[in-house]
Design a binder for these strands. Structure first.
Lengths: 213, 213
DNA sequence: GCATCTACGCGAACAGACTCGCATAGGACC
DNA sequence: GGTCCTATGCGAGTCTGTTCGCGTAGATGC
């Protein structure tokens, strides 16, 4: 299953591989459309397969689980978030502000699709599955990016030098993650979710910022 | 399904209701045992039913979903955590220390059962399901208890009066929740998880504590 | 051309959570 | 005791993600 390390004689552009890529693309497209139409749980694998023009079992040639189909979207979205942030980022702004901006950009992208957040979290609760690792790797990546921002703040004495930037990044990330859960369950509106995130970040930054004693 | 509001003539202790309670108890016992033996996903509903001495479908007279069986354990465990904390709590200790103690107690209880954490989180990703609401209610309850502790710290000027205790409680809770995810996935040991929780809490408290200017 | 290899695809199954319609037993009311 | 009511239990069936074994087409080596 899945790309799989090309066993021995790896052909660069075998006709079969090209066909496979096209199939994969069709599957992803169909999945994305159906996820949006009926939600993750409502979108049946058989339906996805039908729309992609193939049998249900064939999907498993290209994907390890249904969740993986959604997680790919998440990975893309995360890259997009970072790209947008980079584009509008001003490195000389205060660190707190930069973090706020990144989280706002990320939030705006995630808000478009409630299932994405929920299913990513769900995937995280299946320790045996590959997807779980994948999602956790995405988490790590986001935290790494936050570390980058924080570190820069530290070297220019924007942050208290005593703070552990890795722990700080973790805390920031987990605050945003946790704040999204009630939203994903429809208990709070998207903007209330964002406000909660920002309040948490501000709270944390009270302790992170350099004391101007 | 489920207790259901007794329609009109509610009999206090009908023989049938008593039987139902006994069944419920057997189901819960069987479920708990099997969850521990084979894990949540490994424990088949049919197996649970068999051990409880009934058919698989009968379980649904007493429970809305398999997850609900586990969530009941979580609710109990949470009560237990609070009870233990109350027992050993010293109200005159600094707020930060009290929070640390509570989280440590909670951690010790949760650590005994990895699935509990994972499945509770998973339940959270099914917005339509009752269980999701139930778990979120448990979250709220824990946050409420944290608010209680924080509030007490505030009135005695242990905390900066400017901080929003509710937001602080949320942040604290989310930090602990997030820190448990890698642990639930077997990526970090239990004590590393606890350390991460404590580091996050300390970080947050740097900003919460009253400035001794 | 021929044999061989292999990425794809398929239909048939499997497993496991959950639903449905029906049966039963214990109570209540008369 | 007879009649109705209803909480409980059950077996058969549904739905859906996933696996299995087989067939096929395209590529490669000779």
């Amino acid at each position: 299953m899945q790309p799989r390390p090309p066993d021995r004689t790896l052909r660069p552009d075998d006709g079969r591989l090209a066909r496979g890529r096209r199939s994969r693309a069709r599957i992803r497209e169909a999945a994305r459309a159906l996820f949006r139409e009926r939600g993750f749980d409502g979108a049946t694998l058989r339906a996805i397969a039908a729309r992609a023009g193939m049998g249900a079992s064939s999907i498993y040639r290209h994907v390890q689980s249904k969740e993986e189909l959604l997680i790919e979207e998440l990975a893309d979205l995360q890259e997009e978030a970072w790209r947008r942030f980079r584009a509008e980022d001003a490195r000389d702004r205060p660190t707190r502000e930069r973090v706020h901006r990144f989280l706002r950009v990320q939030h705006e992208l995630l808000v478009a699709d409630r299932d994405l957040t929920a299913i990513a979290l769900r995937a995280t609760t299946r320790p045996e599955a590959r997807v779980a690792r994948r999602v956790l790797a995405l988490h790590d990546r986001t935290m790494g990016l936050l570390v980058e921002v924080l570190q820069m703040g530290r070297v220019r004495h924007d942050l208290d030098p005593e703070v552990d930037v890795l722990e700080a990044a973790r805390a920031l990330f987990h605050i945003t993650l946790g704040a999204r859960i009630p939203w994903a369950n429809g208990l709070v509106q998207a903007d209330a979710c964002l406000q909660s995130i920002q309040a948490g970040v501000d709270l944390l930054f009270r302790g992170l910022s350099a004391r101007q004693s």
